[in-house]
């Protein structure tokens, strides 16, 4: 399979588009006609060829453009990538996981040659060819988490495991749904999820932590999370809220189809064997509403989910301003027919 990397932007003129194949492989997050929190974690096993679940770290047509957008974010705000001092080993652990996995799954794009601690990494899409000593930061152009984070789609959080809890002690976070690594770094699992409504009372996080702290190496898990974003903007950080907040005023019945995007996070969880930390990659996929409704099953279901969303979640997911307008727009694409179970198109 060869991937044609798109030249596109996630800011200013927003030239981001999904190809027809990109639309069909989008990880639609709703397996039924409604949504409520659940600990919807499943094994991150290789999925159907061509799907976003085929490989441990999905590389798609947006790879090169997303990495260029990340570079722009980091140039303005270096605090988007940070590691507390005790997370150096976990950072190397993660670099190893990404390099070995990608080199195995995409040999035409990535190559890793190792001779003991002497490693040679080639990343053809980004034109990188580096030799370094594994575990020795001074042999890389930047610290290991930043190095591999600049070459891997999605945000990456390294969670230290202590006292039956997980601690957000390092991360590369530039494509986030409105949370700040710089503020949250050092917090435990319950603290960084503190602002999420309803889920604490439902015991979702208590059940999740028990599962996550016992994830064994080599057996990653995954779940999907979602929100809505106006314009295909990756960097919806709290830091830049004054830049993307006003976008919400541009939503009208005439612009919804073009401007409104379903934003899905493919969250995976991996044990890092050398440090016993956990890595939590959060991969963001965007799908324009105009493109979403080309899949009849998704069009019907999206309407029913948004229409029936609890008010707390309407607020938390930032759609209070235009929720009624959205429901009305989506209703026009729902013929009332039943939908089949599961997330994939019919």
């Amino acid at each position: 399979m060869t991937i044609t990397f798109r030249t596109e932007t996630f800011r200013d003129d927003f030239t981001f588009r999904n190809s027809p194949a990109g639309i069909r492989r989008f990880p639609f997050p709703f397996h039924e006609d409604g949504y409520m929190y659940s600990v919807n974690i499943e094994p991150h096993r290789p999925g159907a060829p061509g799907s976003v679940f085929e490989h441990g770290f999905d590389v798609d047509e947006h790879y090169v453009a997303e990495m260029a957008d990340r570079a722009l974010v980091l140039a303005e705000d270096p605090l988007r990538c940070q590691a507390l001092p005790h997370m150096d080993l976990a950072s190397w652990d993660y670099l190893e996981l990404v390099m070995t996995t990608k080199a195995r799954d995409y040999p035409e794009l990535f190559t890793l040659e190792t001779d003991g601690d002497r490693w040679h990494w080639t990343n053809r899409p980004l034109g990188i060819d580096d030799r370094f000593t594994f575990g020795v930061t001074s042999t890389l152009p930047c610290p290991p988490l930043e190095y591999i984070g600049r070459q891997t789609q999605g945000d990456h959080c390294l969670l230290d495991q202590r006292d039956n809890n997980l601690w957000m002690d390092a991360g590369m976070v530039t494509t986030q749904a409105d949370w700040s690594l710089d503020f949250d770094i050092g917090m435990n699992f319950f603290e960084w999820h503190a602002p999420v409504p309803l889920a604490h009372e439902m015991g979702v996080f208590q059940r999740a932590i028990k599962f996550l702290t016992s994830i064994p190496q080599g057996q990653p898990s995954r779940r999907l999370n979602w929100t809505l974003t106006v314009n295909p903007r990756l960097d919806t950080s709290p830091e830049n809220y004054p830049k993307w907040g006003p976008d919400k005023l541009t939503v009208t019945p005439d612009t919804i189809g073009e401007k409104m995007h379903l934003r899905v996070e493919l969250q995976t969880f991996w044990r890092l064997p050398r440090s016993n930390a956990l890595v939590f990659p959060i991969r963001c996929y965007l799908l324009r509403f105009d493109d979403l409704v080309t899949i009849p099953k998704w069009a019907r279901r999206m309407h029913r989910v948004i229409r029936d969303l609890p008010p707390e979640l309407v607020t938390y997911k930032g759609m209070s301003r235009y929720h009624p307008m959205l429901v009305e727009w989506l209703a026009a694409h729902d013929d009332g027919a039943p939908t089949s179970p599961g997330i994939f198109p019919d």
Partner: peptide, 8 residues
């Protein structure tokens, strides 16, 4: 949801 390490 529970875990057992894989076999080698």
């Amino acid at each position: 949801m529970s875990s057992t390490a894989r076999a080698l």
